[in-house]
Simulated assay, not measured.
Amino acid sequence: MWAELKREIKEAAPSLGIDDIGFASADPFLSLKAVLLDRREKGYESGFEEPDIDKRIYPELSFDGQPASLISIAVAYPSKMENPPKSAPGERRGILARSAWGRDYHLVLREAMKKLEDFIRERIPEARIENMVDTGALVDRAVADRAGIGFKGKNCLIISPKWGTWVYLGELITNIPFPPDTPVTEDCGECTKCLDACPTGALVGPGVLNAQRCISFQTQTKGFVEEEFMLKIGNRLYGCDTCQVVCPKNKGKHWNHRPELQPDPETVKPLLLPILDLSNRQFKERFGTSAAAWRGKNPIQRNAIIALGNFKDPGSVPKLIDILIKDSRPVMRGTAAWALSRIGGTEALSAIVKAIATETDEEVLKRLRNAESKLMEAETPEV
Protein backbone atom coordinates (compact mmCIF):
# COMPACT_ATOMS: atom_id res chain seq x y z
CA MET A 1 0.00 0.00 0.00
CA TRP A 2 2.71 2.50 1.00
CA ALA A 3 4.91 1.58 -1.95
CA GLU A 4 1.97 2.29 -4.28
CA LEU A 5 1.29 5.65 -2.62
CA LYS A 6 4.97 6.51 -2.93
CA ARG A 7 4.84 5.69 -6.66
CA GLU A 8 1.77 7.94 -7.07
CA ILE A 9 3.51 10.79 -5.25
CA LYS A 10 6.61 10.53 -7.41
CA GLU A 11 4.51 10.60 -10.57
CA ALA A 12 2.53 13.60 -9.34
CA ALA A 13 5.53 15.56 -7.99
CA PRO A 14 6.15 17.74 -11.08
CA SER A 15 2.50 18.83 -11.14
CA LEU A 16 2.83 19.82 -7.47
CA GLY A 17 5.79 22.12 -8.19
CA ILE A 18 8.45 19.60 -7.13
CA ASP A 19 11.44 18.74 -9.33
CA ASP A 20 12.81 15.87 -7.27
CA ILE A 21 11.50 13.93 -4.29
CA GLY A 22 12.98 11.25 -2.07
CA PHE A 23 11.88 9.18 0.91
CA ALA A 24 13.89 8.20 3.98
CA SER A 25 13.50 6.71 7.42
CA ALA A 26 12.86 9.07 10.32
CA ASP A 27 15.64 7.52 12.39
CA PRO A 28 17.81 9.97 14.33
CA PHE A 29 20.81 11.45 12.52
CA LEU A 30 23.16 10.13 15.19
CA SER A 31 26.37 10.53 13.16
CA LEU A 32 25.55 14.22 12.80
CA LYS A 33 25.81 14.95 16.52
CA ALA A 34 29.61 14.85 16.70
CA VAL A 35 29.83 17.02 13.57
CA LEU A 36 27.47 19.67 14.94
CA LEU A 37 29.16 19.70 18.35
CA ASP A 38 32.56 20.09 16.71
CA ARG A 39 31.30 23.02 14.63
CA ARG A 40 29.97 24.70 17.75
CA GLU A 41 33.18 24.16 19.72
CA LYS A 42 35.26 25.63 16.89
CA GLY A 43 32.94 28.64 16.44
CA TYR A 44 31.98 27.64 12.90
CA GLU A 45 28.21 28.17 13.32
CA SER A 46 26.48 31.10 11.63
CA GLY A 47 24.00 31.70 14.44
CA PHE A 48 21.09 31.30 12.02
CA GLU A 49 20.76 27.58 12.84
CA GLU A 50 18.40 25.90 15.28
CA PRO A 51 20.31 26.29 18.60
CA ASP A 52 19.10 22.98 20.09
CA ILE A 53 21.37 20.36 18.55
CA ASP A 54 19.09 17.52 19.65
CA LYS A 55 16.27 19.01 17.58
CA ARG A 56 18.55 18.86 14.54
CA ILE A 57 19.26 15.19 15.15
CA TYR A 58 15.95 13.71 16.33
CA PRO A 59 13.00 14.17 13.92
CA GLU A 60 10.54 13.18 16.66
CA LEU A 61 11.31 16.43 18.50
CA SER A 62 9.65 18.31 15.62
CA PHE A 63 6.67 15.98 15.37
CA ASP A 64 3.62 15.17 17.46
CA GLY A 65 4.10 11.47 18.03
CA GLN A 66 6.51 8.96 16.55
CA PRO A 67 7.43 9.74 12.92
CA ALA A 68 7.95 6.92 10.44
CA SER A 69 9.33 8.68 7.36
CA LEU A 70 10.96 11.81 6.02
CA ILE A 71 10.16 13.18 2.57
CA SER A 72 12.77 15.43 0.97
CA ILE A 73 11.81 17.71 -1.91
CA ALA A 74 13.95 19.73 -4.29
CA VAL A 75 13.00 22.64 -6.55
CA ALA A 76 15.56 23.60 -9.22
CA TYR A 77 16.45 27.23 -9.88
CA PRO A 78 18.31 29.01 -12.71
CA SER A 79 22.06 29.55 -12.83
CA LYS A 80 22.23 31.93 -15.81
CA MET A 81 20.78 35.34 -16.57
CA GLU A 82 19.64 36.40 -20.02
CA ASN A 83 21.23 39.67 -21.18
CA PRO A 84 22.64 40.77 -17.82
CA PRO A 85 23.15 44.54 -17.54
CA LYS A 86 26.75 45.72 -17.48
CA SER A 87 28.49 47.85 -14.90
CA ALA A 88 30.01 51.09 -16.16
CA PRO A 89 31.78 54.10 -14.61
CA GLY A 90 29.16 56.06 -12.69
CA GLU A 91 26.72 53.17 -13.10
CA ARG A 92 28.23 50.42 -11.01
CA ARG A 93 26.09 47.39 -10.21
CA GLY A 94 25.85 44.82 -7.44
CA ILE A 95 24.74 41.22 -7.68
CA LEU A 96 22.45 38.91 -5.72
CA ALA A 97 23.27 35.21 -5.35
CA ARG A 98 21.28 32.94 -7.63
CA SER A 99 19.28 31.53 -4.72
CA ALA A 100 17.70 35.00 -4.38
CA TRP A 101 17.04 35.63 -8.07
CA GLY A 102 13.40 34.63 -8.26
CA ARG A 103 10.48 34.54 -5.89
CA ASP A 104 11.40 33.86 -2.26
CA TYR A 105 12.16 30.15 -2.15
CA HIS A 106 10.62 29.75 1.30
CA LEU A 107 7.25 30.58 -0.23
CA VAL A 108 7.87 28.41 -3.30
CA LEU A 109 8.80 25.39 -1.18
CA ARG A 110 5.98 25.86 1.32
CA GLU A 111 3.41 26.03 -1.48
CA ALA A 112 4.81 22.88 -3.07
CA MET A 113 4.80 21.05 0.25
CA LYS A 114 1.24 22.19 0.99
CA LYS A 115 0.15 20.71 -2.35
CA LEU A 116 1.98 17.51 -1.47
CA GLU A 117 0.29 17.36 1.95
CA ASP A 118 -3.12 17.82 0.33
CA PHE A 119 -2.30 15.10 -2.22
CA ILE A 120 -1.40 12.66 0.56
CA ARG A 121 -4.38 13.54 2.77
CA GLU A 122 -6.81 13.03 -0.11
CA ARG A 123 -5.65 9.42 -0.06
CA ILE A 124 -4.83 9.02 3.63
CA PRO A 125 -7.07 11.48 5.55
CA GLU A 126 -5.67 10.48 8.92
CA ALA A 127 -2.03 11.08 7.89
CA ARG A 128 0.03 13.31 10.17
CA ILE A 129 2.50 15.55 8.36
CA GLU A 130 4.79 18.42 9.40
CA ASN A 131 6.80 20.41 6.87
CA MET A 132 9.81 22.70 7.17
CA VAL A 133 12.20 24.72 5.02
CA ASP A 134 15.66 25.91 6.10
CA THR A 135 14.13 27.74 9.05
CA GLY A 136 13.12 24.38 10.53
CA ALA A 137 15.09 22.29 13.00
CA LEU A 138 16.28 19.43 10.80
CA VAL A 139 19.35 19.74 8.58
CA ASP A 140 17.91 19.95 5.06
CA ARG A 141 21.03 18.54 3.47
CA ALA A 142 21.23 15.56 5.82
CA VAL A 143 17.62 14.68 4.99
CA ALA A 144 18.21 15.13 1.24
CA ASP A 145 21.34 12.99 1.41
CA ARG A 146 19.53 10.15 3.20
CA ALA A 147 16.54 10.41 0.84
CA GLY A 148 18.63 10.05 -2.32
CA ILE A 149 18.17 13.59 -3.70
CA GLY A 150 21.94 13.94 -3.99
CA PHE A 151 25.19 13.60 -2.10
CA LYS A 152 26.94 16.04 0.22
CA GLY A 153 29.66 17.79 -1.75
CA LYS A 154 32.93 19.14 -0.46
CA ASN A 155 31.31 22.57 -0.74
CA CYS A 156 28.81 21.42 1.93
CA LEU A 157 25.94 21.56 -0.56
CA ILE A 158 23.77 18.74 -1.82
CA ILE A 159 24.85 17.85 -5.35
CA SER A 160 22.12 16.17 -7.37
CA PRO A 161 23.31 14.03 -10.29
CA LYS A 162 20.52 15.59 -12.37
CA TRP A 163 20.15 19.14 -11.02
CA GLY A 164 23.60 19.91 -9.63
CA THR A 165 23.66 22.23 -6.62
CA TRP A 166 21.05 24.59 -8.08
CA VAL A 167 18.21 23.31 -5.89
CA TYR A 168 16.14 24.55 -2.97
CA LEU A 169 15.46 21.92 -0.34
CA GLY A 170 12.57 21.25 2.01
CA GLU A 171 11.32 18.27 3.97
CA LEU A 172 8.25 16.75 5.53
CA ILE A 173 7.97 14.48 8.56
CA THR A 174 5.14 11.95 8.55
CA ASN A 175 3.80 8.93 10.38
CA ILE A 176 3.36 7.07 7.07
CA PRO A 177 5.96 4.27 6.76
CA PHE A 178 7.08 4.86 3.17
CA PRO A 179 9.72 2.51 1.75
CA PRO A 180 13.00 4.49 1.80
CA ASP A 181 14.95 5.45 -1.30
CA THR A 182 18.60 4.56 -1.84
CA PRO A 183 21.18 7.29 -1.15
CA VAL A 184 23.30 8.50 -4.07
CA THR A 185 26.71 6.79 -4.14
CA GLU A 186 28.39 9.38 -6.38
CA ASP A 187 30.92 11.73 -4.76
CA CYS A 188 33.37 14.54 -5.54
CA GLY A 189 36.33 12.25 -6.07
CA GLU A 190 39.67 14.05 -5.92
CA CYS A 191 38.22 17.42 -6.98
CA THR A 192 38.92 20.35 -4.63
CA LYS A 193 37.94 23.25 -6.89
CA CYS A 194 35.43 24.66 -4.42
CA LEU A 195 37.93 24.61 -1.54
CA ASP A 196 40.57 26.26 -3.72
CA ALA A 197 38.21 28.97 -5.01
CA CYS A 198 36.49 29.98 -1.74
CA PRO A 199 37.30 33.71 -1.42
CA THR A 200 37.95 33.62 2.32
CA GLY A 201 38.99 30.03 2.96
CA ALA A 202 35.66 29.40 4.69
CA LEU A 203 35.69 25.84 3.39
CA VAL A 204 38.28 24.70 5.89
CA GLY A 205 38.17 21.11 4.67
CA PRO A 206 36.09 18.78 2.50
CA GLY A 207 32.51 19.20 3.70
CA VAL A 208 33.55 21.50 6.57
CA LEU A 209 32.39 25.13 6.52
CA ASN A 210 33.37 27.89 8.93
CA ALA A 211 30.20 29.91 8.40
CA GLN A 212 31.69 32.93 10.17
CA ARG A 213 34.16 33.31 7.29
CA CYS A 214 31.66 32.57 4.51
CA ILE A 215 30.98 35.58 2.26
CA SER A 216 27.33 34.57 2.05
CA PHE A 217 27.07 34.83 5.86
CA GLN A 218 29.01 38.10 5.96
CA THR A 219 26.63 39.74 3.48
CA GLN A 220 23.69 38.83 5.74
CA THR A 221 25.09 40.20 9.00
CA LYS A 222 23.75 43.54 10.26
CA GLY A 223 26.78 45.12 11.89
CA PHE A 224 30.21 46.26 10.81
CA VAL A 225 32.16 44.00 8.46
CA GLU A 226 35.89 43.61 8.97
CA GLU A 227 38.16 44.87 6.18
CA GLU A 228 39.38 41.36 5.34
CA PHE A 229 35.85 40.42 4.32
CA MET A 230 34.91 43.75 2.74
CA LEU A 231 37.77 43.34 0.30
CA LYS A 232 36.52 39.86 -0.62
CA ILE A 233 32.82 40.78 -0.89
CA GLY A 234 33.49 42.58 -4.17
CA ASN A 235 30.12 43.74 -5.50
CA ARG A 236 28.03 41.03 -3.81
CA LEU A 237 24.88 42.43 -2.21
CA TYR A 238 23.58 39.11 -0.94
CA GLY A 239 25.12 35.67 -0.84
CA CYS A 240 27.99 34.10 -2.74
CA ASP A 241 27.95 31.52 -5.54
CA THR A 242 31.69 30.91 -6.03
CA CYS A 243 31.77 27.34 -4.71
CA GLN A 244 28.84 26.46 -6.98
CA VAL A 245 30.07 28.24 -10.10
CA VAL A 246 33.41 26.39 -10.05
CA CYS A 247 31.86 22.97 -9.34
CA PRO A 248 32.33 20.61 -12.31
CA LYS A 249 29.10 18.83 -11.32
CA ASN A 250 27.24 22.02 -12.27
CA LYS A 251 28.71 22.24 -15.77
CA GLY A 252 25.94 22.80 -18.30
CA LYS A 253 23.21 22.79 -15.66
CA HIS A 254 20.72 25.66 -15.95
CA TRP A 255 17.02 25.51 -15.21
CA ASN A 256 14.49 27.91 -16.73
CA HIS A 257 11.29 25.84 -16.51
CA ARG A 258 9.85 27.83 -13.59
CA PRO A 259 8.81 31.39 -14.58
CA GLU A 260 8.48 32.50 -10.94
CA LEU A 261 12.17 31.74 -10.35
CA GLN A 262 13.53 33.58 -13.38
CA PRO A 263 15.53 36.72 -12.54
CA ASP A 264 14.63 40.30 -13.32
CA PRO A 265 18.07 41.59 -14.36
CA GLU A 266 17.50 45.08 -12.95
CA THR A 267 16.54 43.61 -9.58
CA VAL A 268 19.22 40.95 -9.22
CA LYS A 269 22.02 43.04 -10.75
CA PRO A 270 20.93 46.50 -9.63
CA LEU A 271 22.60 49.89 -9.87
CA LEU A 272 24.33 50.56 -6.56
CA LEU A 273 23.85 54.29 -6.00
CA PRO A 274 20.01 54.24 -6.17
CA ILE A 275 19.94 51.49 -3.52
CA LEU A 276 21.40 53.92 -1.00
CA ASP A 277 18.34 56.21 -1.26
CA LEU A 278 15.67 53.52 -0.82
CA SER A 279 13.18 53.95 2.01
CA ASN A 280 11.92 50.87 3.85
CA ARG A 281 8.78 50.91 1.72
CA GLN A 282 10.72 51.30 -1.51
CA PHE A 283 13.08 48.51 -0.49
CA LYS A 284 10.14 46.14 0.09
CA GLU A 285 8.63 47.10 -3.25
CA ARG A 286 11.94 46.48 -5.02
CA PHE A 287 13.31 43.43 -3.22
CA GLY A 288 10.43 42.17 -1.06
CA THR A 289 9.63 39.15 -3.23
CA SER A 290 13.24 37.92 -3.03
CA ALA A 291 14.86 35.81 -0.31
CA ALA A 292 17.46 38.59 -0.10
CA ALA A 293 14.96 40.81 1.71
CA TRP A 294 14.72 38.71 4.86
CA ARG A 295 17.26 40.79 6.81
CA GLY A 296 15.85 44.13 5.71
CA LYS A 297 17.44 46.97 3.78
CA ASN A 298 20.38 47.81 6.07
CA PRO A 299 22.68 44.90 5.13
CA ILE A 300 21.97 45.43 1.41
CA GLN A 301 22.72 49.16 1.66
CA ARG A 302 25.89 48.50 3.66
CA ASN A 303 27.00 45.97 1.04
CA ALA A 304 26.28 48.51 -1.71
CA ILE A 305 28.66 50.93 0.02
CA ILE A 306 31.29 48.17 0.24
CA ALA A 307 30.83 47.41 -3.46
CA LEU A 308 31.28 51.09 -4.40
CA GLY A 309 34.54 51.10 -2.44
CA ASN A 310 35.72 47.98 -4.22
CA PHE A 311 34.90 49.48 -7.62
CA LYS A 312 37.02 52.57 -6.71
CA ASP A 313 34.76 54.72 -8.87
CA PRO A 314 35.29 58.46 -8.17
CA GLY A 315 31.74 59.10 -9.34
CA SER A 316 30.40 57.63 -6.10
CA VAL A 317 32.41 59.96 -3.82
CA PRO A 318 29.71 62.67 -3.41
CA LYS A 319 27.09 60.12 -2.31
CA LEU A 320 29.51 58.40 0.05
CA ILE A 321 30.40 61.73 1.63
CA ASP A 322 26.71 62.49 2.05
CA ILE A 323 26.30 59.20 3.94
CA LEU A 324 29.43 59.84 5.97
CA ILE A 325 28.15 63.22 7.17
CA LYS A 326 24.38 62.78 7.34
CA ASP A 327 23.42 59.12 7.84
CA SER A 328 22.12 58.36 11.34
CA ARG A 329 23.36 54.75 11.23
CA PRO A 330 26.90 54.20 12.54
CA VAL A 331 27.43 51.12 10.35
CA MET A 332 26.74 53.13 7.20
CA ARG A 333 29.01 55.99 8.27
CA GLY A 334 31.86 53.69 9.19
CA THR A 335 31.51 51.66 5.99
CA ALA A 336 31.38 54.84 3.90
CA ALA A 337 34.67 55.93 5.51
CA TRP A 338 36.28 52.69 4.40
CA ALA A 339 34.85 53.00 0.88
CA LEU A 340 36.17 56.54 0.56
CA SER A 341 39.62 55.39 1.67
CA ARG A 342 39.54 52.77 -1.11
CA ILE A 343 38.64 55.36 -3.75
CA GLY A 344 41.05 58.01 -2.51
CA GLY A 345 41.52 61.65 -3.46
CA THR A 346 41.65 65.01 -1.69
CA GLU A 347 37.85 65.34 -1.59
CA ALA A 348 37.56 62.07 0.28
CA LEU A 349 40.34 63.01 2.71
CA SER A 350 38.78 66.40 3.43
CA ALA A 351 35.43 64.75 4.20
CA ILE A 352 37.07 62.19 6.50
CA VAL A 353 38.88 64.91 8.47
CA LYS A 354 35.66 66.88 8.81
CA ALA A 355 33.77 63.79 10.00
CA ILE A 356 36.39 62.98 12.65
CA ALA A 357 35.77 66.38 14.25
CA THR A 358 32.08 65.64 14.89
CA GLU A 359 31.78 61.84 15.16
CA THR A 360 30.86 60.44 18.59
CA ASP A 361 30.58 56.70 17.90
CA GLU A 362 33.81 54.94 18.94
CA GLU A 363 33.72 52.24 16.25
CA VAL A 364 33.04 54.80 13.53
CA LEU A 365 35.85 56.99 14.86
CA LYS A 366 38.23 54.05 14.68
CA ARG A 367 37.29 53.45 11.07
CA LEU A 368 37.50 57.12 10.24
CA ARG A 369 41.03 57.30 11.62
CA ASN A 370 42.03 54.20 9.67
CA ALA A 371 40.61 55.81 6.54
CA GLU A 372 42.43 59.07 7.27
CA SER A 373 45.72 57.22 7.71
CA LYS A 374 45.34 55.40 4.41
CA LEU A 375 44.34 58.52 2.52
CA MET A 376 47.19 60.59 3.96
CA GLU A 377 49.65 57.85 3.11
CA ALA A 378 48.32 57.82 -0.45
CA GLU A 379 48.57 61.62 -0.68
CA THR A 380 52.17 61.69 0.59
CA PRO A 381 54.61 61.59 -2.33
CA GLU A 382 57.32 58.95 -2.16
CA VAL A 383 60.82 60.27 -1.47
Rank of each mutant, 00 (worst) to 15 (best):
L272E: 01
R98G: 03
R258L: 09
A371R: 11
I300H: 02
S79V: 10
R128L: 02
I9H: 02
I352Q: 04
L365I: 14
Q212W: 07
T219H: 07
T346N: 14
I120E: 03
A351V: 11
R103K: 15
E266V: 06
R236Q: 05
R286N: 07
R369S: 08
M332P: 04
K284R: 15
P180G: 02
L138E: 05
E285L: 13
A147I: 10
P84H: 11
M132W: 14
E382Q: 14
K115W: 10
I158R: 00
S290L: 09
E122S: 12
G43C: 04
A127F: 14
V133M: 00
P28C: 02
E82P: 08
L308M: 12
P84Q: 12
I356Y: 05
T219Y: 02
I57R: 08
I149M: 06
R146L: 03
I325P: 03
A211V: 05
I306R: 06
G22L: 09
L349N: 00
K193L: 12
V208C: 01
P125Y: 10
A292L: 01
N280W: 14
K42V: 01
W163D: 08
A137D: 07
G315T: 04
A348N: 07
A357E: 15
P270G: 07
A371S: 13
E8S: 11
G22P: 10
R56G: 05
S350P: 07
P206E: 10
S341W: 07
E82L: 13
I18G: 00
K114Y: 14
K297L: 06
E227G: 00
K162H: 13
C214S: 09
D134E: 05
H254Y: 10
D54Q: 13
T267Y: 05
G22R: 13
D27V: 01
L203D: 01
G47S: 09
E362M: 12
L61S: 05
S216E: 10
E60F: 14
V383P: 15
F217Y: 15
T182N: 10
A34E: 15
N256D: 14
L209T: 13
M132I: 07
V383C: 05
L261E: 06
L308T: 01
E372T: 10
V139C: 03
D145W: 13
D264R: 12
L195W: 11
E260L: 08
E363K: 14
R236P: 01
I158E: 07
L157R: 14
A351E: 08
L278G: 05
L340R: 11
P125H: 11
L157H: 13
F63H: 00
L276H: 06
L37Q: 15
G334H: 12
F48T: 12
G43R: 09
R329V: 07
R141I: 07
K374M: 12
